[in-house]
Amino acid sequence: MPDLSPLYALLPLLLPFECLQARFMQQALLGLLLLAPMAAVMGLMVVNFRMAFFSDAISHSAFAGVALGLIFSVDPGWTMPAFGLLVGLGIMILQRHSSLSSDTVIGVFFSAMVAFGLAIVSRDRSLARDLQRFLYGDILTISDSQILSLMLLFLVLMTFQAVSYNHLLYIGLNPALAQAHRVRVAIQQYFFAGLLALVVMFSVQAVGVLLVTAMLIVPAAAARNVARSAGAMFWWAMLVSLSSAVAGLLISAQDWARTATGATIIIVACGWFLVSLVVAALRRGQAV
């Protein structure tokens, strides 16, 4: 396994806060610096594709993925994203090959995954204690192997976005028209669904099942309020997501706060959203 110590040593120099002297805080910060941009980029597409419910269904499948890992003595860090990936692709396959609406398909999967997870947990009450940290999230427990997985996912996702960003926007506006202009809609949608499922699963560890959709949606919504173009919206979402992640981690580590890191990150992002509402209102006033 590659040695990440040089990266960890660099972080306190860039952000000279006392709380970042601890190794677990350095790991958490590096994990968030990788995860936040991915959540921002995928969040834009979630808003564009109207797939917020999709991310909810994936996040709630985390219970089943973790429970299966614990039952079969496999690291939940691997079973959770693998199970989420299967669920995400399953939803997309059924959406494309069924006459049912997308909300109906996602609702069926959502219900099935929650019921399946609860059924597994009910067999062994001791599992409930292990699953609690995935309910609320705990980025402070991230490991080097998970950070390396995030690095690989980051490279794949950003390459995909660089190649397909405009195509995805086109598909979001009108899939039939995109197909007519020789955009490979099916391949793009399957790839997007798979990457979104993986990002959601890693986000579960950072902010928990209850808040994972907010990590995707809030930065994108704030960016949409202030940006004047699709390109600007991309960079605004990046700014909101990264600043919220870093500020949330640092605030939660202060003695006067001592709050859950995931919840603090989302609170900061919601603060950004409120500011964006004011900016949007001022612009509309000037236009009038």
Rank of each mutant, 00 (worst) to 15 (best):
171 I>V: 13
233 M>W: 02
182 R>N: 15
154 F>D: 08
144 D>L: 00
170 Y>H: 08
95 Q>Y: 11
212 V>A: 12
116 F>E: 05
232 A>I: 00
266 I>V: 14
240 V>G: 07
260 A>D: 14
175 P>L: 11
215 M>Q: 09
24 F>W: 13
112 A>P: 01
118 L>M: 11
288 V>A: 14
32 L>G: 04
96 R>H: 13
135 L>I: 14
176 A>T: 11
112 A>W: 05
252 S>G: 08
183 V>K: 07
183 V>E: 02
148 L>P: 04
150 L>M: 14
33 L>K: 03
85 L>G: 03
23 R>C: 01
61 S>G: 10
272 W>C: 13
239 L>V: 15
25 M>N: 13
200 V>R: 12
43 G>P: 10
198 L>K: 04
94 L>V: 14
139 I>L: 07
110 F>M: 13
16 P>S: 05
203 S>C: 10
15 L>C: 07
47 V>Q: 15
82 A>S: 11
216 L>V: 10
123 R>K: 10
103 D>F: 08
77 G>S: 13
243 S>T: 15
159 T>G: 08
102 S>F: 02
130 D>I: 09
229 S>I: 03
160 F>M: 12
116 F>D: 13
9 A>K: 10
27 Q>E: 07
103 D>N: 10
45 M>S: 02
29 L>Q: 01
191 F>P: 00
110 F>H: 12
230 A>V: 04
112 A>E: 01
197 A>V: 08
4 L>N: 00
136 Y>W: 15
233 M>Q: 10
56 D>N: 12
238 M>I: 08
138 D>R: 04
125 R>G: 15
223 A>K: 01
147 I>H: 04
203 S>T: 11
53 F>I: 05
